[in-house]
Design a protein around this nucleic acid. Structure first.
Length: 560
RNA sequence: UGGGGUAUCGCCAAGCGGUAAGGCAACGGGUUUUGAUCUCGUCAUGCGCAGGUUCAAAUCCUGCUACCCCAGCCA
């Protein structure tokens, strides 16, 4: 039942939904029941993660239950693949749904009986208007609609027609079942909304049993009622469906009366969170798939190395309100770094290798140094082989020795530098090839400086990471950056695709990693010191060909 | 336009008639064998605008303005 420790429910901000719940509880409500109701027509993204946290988190906070229910009322868009992925995502985030997974399709028989009930009560009718005609009859904002000519069929005729729709006698689009409400309502949702439409598609749960499928409106509230959901939390765009939601609850013999509450969708800048756009990015191969690390899908974030804790902490930091705002990506990144900084093992990886020869260290000798796995937490130590030939990052060396010690805390000729977890060295020489490119840097180590400060006058300019050229291993590193280079890819003229960052992905083949890293289990996150956080790829990483994905860089306050 | 919703620091946001919480970002200082972490400090005489009620208004009233959503046999 308890999905996460109470520790994080404590820091969850209170919100208007919780206020309502506390009131309900005081007035005698027994148990809070919520639900997360995805449609299995795509992969879940960060926006769904927030909804998951709100629904499961709210149930947890009040010791209630949260169902996972697939809103599978439209077989032409839905697939089993998505059902499976969504279950995986919810579990990965660390939540457990109450009982079995539910499906709207579990209740199709009941819905059908309820449709017959509405017909008998004179509250529903079969309408033969074409989609185009129906649209005309619906009217517009300022103009009331007109009653359908089929509005006054007898109950018998309606019952017969509905049954024949069900068994497949009519073509798709030829008839629908509509509620008889008010064609002049200022709320368009009340202008005789559609209850059932003909769809001759195979359904992933019910196969070919049905030729008609209920609309969202005719299903959602009833599903909630059947499951005993007390607080049906959804996003703002459903606010004007609420009167309809309640109309069904009062006109149908439902076993309970849930209430709907709406909150604002989560938007984050520099990304898109719309299933349609995500699908387009995938279908048109702008990304490698639904789990591309640049996508805000849960599968993508997972592959990128974002942790479930980080995603959850971020979602919990967000308020549940009715404002439609855009959250700064920086706020999300804060929680990613926070979690990784606390928990990721430290390691060294040279992304852009430059050979460093320690001229006063014997060839062929290997000195095994020991370094802490984490600088602050007790996470043990790891072994680092130190040899005569090492690799350092090309960016950590500059042959201009006049660079100020304050501004350039890296290696320059004649000056001192600390090798992380090893010796202080002094650059003595460099070797260039015919084109003038530096191929080697020579240096000598200061004896006795492992874990000790160097003698007076040898203070290092800074600290740099390194890997043994002979004992280290080669690795592939995939570097990801934001997929869009503008804050709001959606805004402005032209397609959001025009705002794709062409440099959002690059792969570096010849990186050098400390040898222990080849044993990393896929999906293990590390901090490559001074570079950022990286994760062993969920699918492609192996001891033979280590593959790491850049999750996010270190915070960098270094001003030029 | 008819209906629905929302406006408080660059971003998110608390506030529920008693004199503007917090987080992110930013900017300064300290510690540091990661330019990381950690730590200390600064950051709204102001709450979309204009009136009004009140001893007292971000909170109540009136009138504006801006933005978002609906007008699918999608959810």
């Amino acid at each position: 039942m308890s999905n996460n420790d109470a520790s994080n429910t404590a820091k969850q901000p209170t919100n208007f939904i919780h206020q309502v719940i506390e009131q309900d509880l005081q007035q005698g409500l027994g148990k809070v029941v919520t639900r997360f109701p995805p449609e299995p027509n795509g992969y879940l993204h960060i926006g769904h993660a927030k909804s998951i946290c709100v629904n499961f988190g709210t149930a947890d906070k009040y010791s209630g239950e949260c169902n996972l229910r697939f809103d599978d009322t439209n077989p032409s868009k839905e697939e089993q693949e998505f059902v499976d992925a969504i279950k995986d995502d919810v579990q990965w985030l660390g939540f457990n749904w109450a009982g079995e997974v539910r499906y709207a399709s579990d209740y199709f028989d009941t819905f059908y009986a309820w449709a017959q009930h509405l017909i008998r009560e004179g509250n529903a009718y079969v309408c033969d208007l074409s989609p185009e005609e129906a649209s005309e009859y619906r009217g517009w904002a300022t103009t009331p609609g007109k009653d359908s000519p089929f509005r006054n069929r007898t109950a018998e005729e309606n019952l017969d027609l509905l049954e024949r729709m069900k068994v497949g006698e009519f073509d798709e689009g030829s008839r629908v079942l509509r509620a008889k409400i008010d064609m002049a309502s200022p709320n368009m949702n009340l202008r005789d909304p559609i209850l059932y439409r003909i769809r001759k598609a195979v359904h992933h749960q019910t196969g070919s049993k049905w030729n008609i499928y209920p609309s969202y409106d005719f299903a959602h509230g009833q599903e909630d009622a059947i499951e005993g959901v007390t607080h049906s939390i959804c996003t703002l765009e459903f606010a004007d469906h609420q009167p309809l939601y309640e109309w069904f609850l009062t006109n149908l013999p439902v076993p309970s009366t849930p209430r709907q509450y709406e909150f604002g969708r989560l938007n984050i800048n520099y990304t898109v969170t719309s299933k349609r756009k995500l699908k387009q990015l995938v279908d048109e191969n702008h990304v490698s798939g639904w789990d591309d690390p640049r996508l805000p899908t849960i599968q993508g974030m997972r592959r990128r190395g974002y942790t479930a804790d980080a995603v959850r902490n971020f979602c919990d930091s967000l308020a549940v309100s009715k404002t439609d705002g855009v959250v700064d990506m920086a706020q999300f990144e804060f929680f990613i770094r926070e979690d990784l900084n606390d928990n990721a093992a430290r390691a060294m990886c040279v992304l852009n290798p430059l050979k460093l020869v320690i001229t006063n260290f014997p060839e062929g000798q290997v000195e095994t140094l020991s370094a802490p796995v984490h600088p602050q937490k007790e996470m043990g130590t790891r072994e680092l082989p130190f040899t005569r030939e090492l690799y350092i990052d090309r960016n950590d060396y500059n042959e201009d020795s006049t660079l100020s010690r304050k501004k350039f805390k890296k290696l320059v000729p004649g000056d001192f530098m600390r090798l992380r977890g090893a010796y202080v060295i002094k650059a003595t020489d460099l070797v260039k090839d015919a084109t003038g490119e530096i191929t080697e840097v020579h240096a000598e180590l200061i004896p006795g400086t492992v874990g000790e400060n160097p003698p007076e006058g040898m203070k290092p300019r800074g600290v740099m990471h390194w890997v043994s050229a002979t004992e280290g291993k080669q690795a592939v590193v995939r570097v990801y950056d934001r997929l869009f280079n503008v804050e709001s890819p959606d805004k402005g003229e032209g397609s959001f695709l025009d705002n794709i960052n062409p440099e959002s992905f690059s792969q570096i083949e010849n990186c050098w990693i400390e040898p222990g890293l080849v044993d990393a289990a896929p999906e293990t996150g590390f901090q490559f010191e001074r570079e950022g956080y990286f994760v062993a790829d969920r699918y492609d990483h192996s001891a033979e060909t280590p593959v790491f994905n850049k999750t996010i860089g270190l915070r960098d306050t270094w001003k030029k």
